[in-house]
Computed example of a mutant assay.
Amino acid sequence: MEKTPRGRPRSEVNRVAILNAARDLLVEIGWDALSIEQIAVRAGVSKQTAYRWWRTKGDIVAEGIVEGNISFVMASVVDASDIGTDLKSTLSALSTSLTAPGVDPLRRALTAAAAANEEVAIRQRDLLVTPLRDQLEQRLARAVAAGELRPDIDLDTMVDTLLGAVFHRITNIHGPGSDMSDSLVDLILHGAAAGTAPVQICR
C-alpha cells in the first residue's frame, strides 16, 4: 500500500470520503469498471488529490479493507454441540452471510479485485479469511481432544476442504449452501470409501 508522500497532509474527511466512495462504486459497477477518476468524482475531490495519496485503485481498496470501510462480516464458527452439528451450522451460516443481498455484490467485487491486485488479496486474506480459518481449526482441535476426530487428522487440510468447498460453490453457483453444507460435512466426517460403515460422530 502506497505511503503518504511528503507535502500537503491528507485531509481525514477527504480520505474517508474516498474510501467510502470506492466501496460504494465496487458494489455498483464492480472492480473492472472502477477507476480512480470515478472514485474522486463520487467522493467530491479532485483526481489530482486522489493520485497524490494513492497510486492505483488497488491501493485505495486495500487501505479501505484495512480501515474497515470496505469489508463485510462473516459468520463465526459455532461451538455448541457435537462436531458434526457445529460444522453444519457453521458452513450454512457462512454461506448465508456471504450471499446476503448487502454482502454478495461487495464480496464478488472484492474477489475480482483480489485476483487482479496482490495487495488487495493479501489484505482480504489477513483480515477476512485468516481469522475464520483460525477459529475453525481451533474448533476442530477441540473435537480431536474430545475424541470426536482422529488424533492424526490433518487439521489444515480439513479446514481448506471445508471452507474451499463453500467458497467455490458461492463463487461459481451463487446458491444457498445449507443442503451442500450438510452433505459436505457428512462426506468429510464419514468418508467416501465403499463398504465402510458411517462413523458415529455424536458422543
Rank of each mutant, 00 (worst) to 15 (best):
L94Y: 09
S89Y: 13
E118F: 04
D104L: 15
I153Y: 05
H174K: 12
I153E: 11
A100V: 03
E148N: 06
V166N: 10
I122V: 08
E119S: 04
A93L: 03
S97W: 04
L110V: 02
L110G: 05
P176N: 10
V159L: 05
A80Q: 15
L140P: 10
T111E: 12
L163E: 01
N69F: 03
S92H: 12
R107C: 10
L136G: 07
V77I: 02
D104G: 09
Q135W: 06
D156E: 15
I65C: 00
A93M: 04
V61C: 02
L163F: 03
D156P: 05
D82T: 02
E67M: 08
T85D: 15
H174C: 14
D156S: 15
P151A: 12
P131K: 01
R123E: 13
A100F: 07
M158R: 07
T130E: 15
L136V: 08
A114W: 00
A141I: 00
L132Y: 07
I70H: 00
A93S: 13
E119F: 01
E67F: 02
A113D: 01
G164F: 03
T96Q: 10
Q135P: 09
D86N: 05
L149Y: 04
E63S: 07
I153W: 05
M158N: 08
G84P: 06
S92A: 14
T157I: 10
A115Y: 12
V73D: 14
V103L: 07
T85P: 12
A115C: 02
A62E: 03
L162H: 08
V61Q: 02
M74S: 14
R125K: 14
A114C: 01
G68H: 01
S95H: 12
G68E: 06
N117D: 14
A146G: 05
L162K: 03
D82Q: 07
T85Y: 15
S92D: 12
L136H: 10
L98M: 15
A100D: 06
D156Q: 15
M74V: 09
R107I: 05
A145H: 06
P151N: 09
M158I: 07
L127M: 08
A143L: 10
A113K: 05
G175H: 08
F167M: 15
Q124W: 08
N69P: 00
R139H: 15
T171G: 12
E137I: 05
D156R: 14
D160V: 08
A113L: 02
G175C: 11
P131D: 03
R125E: 14
I60C: 00
V129E: 06
R107V: 08
T96P: 00
A116W: 02
R150I: 01
A115K: 06
R107M: 09
H174A: 14
P131H: 02
V78A: 12
T130N: 13
A146L: 06
V103N: 01
A121L: 01
D79Q: 12
R139W: 13
Q138I: 05
V61D: 03
E137M: 13
